[in-house]
Design a protein around this nucleic acid. Sequence first.
DNA 1: TTACTCATGTAACAAGTTACATGATTTA
DNA 2: TAAATCATGTAACTTGTTACATGAGTAA
Lengths: 168, 168
Amino acid sequence: MLTELEGSVLSELHHRGRQTAFQVRRSFSTSPSIEWRGSAGAVYPAIKRMERDGLIAAEAKGDGRATRLLSVTAEGLEAMMQWACDPGRASSVGIDPFRMRAGIWMQLEGARRAEVLTAVRQELLEGMERLAGWSRHGDSIERASVDLSLRLQRARLDWLDEVAQGEG
Amino acid sequence: MLTELEGSVLSELHHRGRQTAFQVRRSFSTSPSIEWRGSAGAVYPAIKRMERDGLIAAEAKGDGRATRLLSVTAEGLEAMMQWACDPGRASSVGIDPFRMRAGIWMQLEGARRAEVLTAVRQELLEGMERLAGWSRHGDSIERASVDLSLRLQRARLDWLDEVAQGEG
DNA sequence: TTACTCATGTAACAAGTTACATGATTTA
DNA sequence: TAAATCATGTAACTTGTTACATGAGTAA
């Protein structure tokens, strides 16, 4: 069974075509909707594992550097599809830092609560603006992911507003 | 800086009052909105760390077993509040298995896509039903978390329906 | 007395993180 | 030629996972 990082690496390679590990890492670290840091210490070992298992093929670019172009094999595509199309894993709620903290916020008294909720709300709005900006220079596949991030943030925002309204 | 698990353990202790590590673990493994497995190998070391750092106090129950009742110290409460009220961490989108996979689903052709989206939709609905059931026998703090899970799932459902509608 | 639950904990392993090492190419 | 970027990789560490070991109390 692929880890979330492994699945994401395969997705990235499948989506953008032949890429270096470095390019995959950079996608991860710059994308606002992929949370992976793109750590060398995570990405290179993951690729090594998947090469060993025949999910990824590599070929030297021959540019004088050690550059290797990676691609998804037929076996890799199958593994990726199995990873992507498992309804149980896909629909799990995941580990959501906002949800983890919401219960504590509800226990705060008036002024402190308002202060915290306002700060979080502000941060959400700023994040959503960044996401909206990013959405403009991506393709339709990337936009799906950004769109889902935006929907999540909007749902959180609605919750915040209903909580604030509930106490006047 | 507390990890998400450490923060969750402190939240649980603070919310329910003096508890054994075993009870905390059970809460984690039965709650539908806390994703932690409640692994002994994660929870006991986390508690040990926080005891060492003075965030958790323990006292023997003296029931013949090795039972120890844990509670959050003043220092622990402060650490928990700092953890909970950091807007940056709270509003991060997190690692969302649904979003990670959405891009791949969009690349599937007609019949296969419909099949996958239907299966995911079904799983979402079942999960939401379980959440709704759970919501009835929790207190207001727990309900906040379950409510947020439901909103996330509803946002995903809306997205699925719009995607399905977009192709007729 | 057998099985289940409560209760704590460790060992082996998996898979992330940061920080570092190394070196080629490109740009200012 | 100095600095930035491209590119690969390892080492030490952190913190999760499952599986196991141990033992007391409780209910069949």
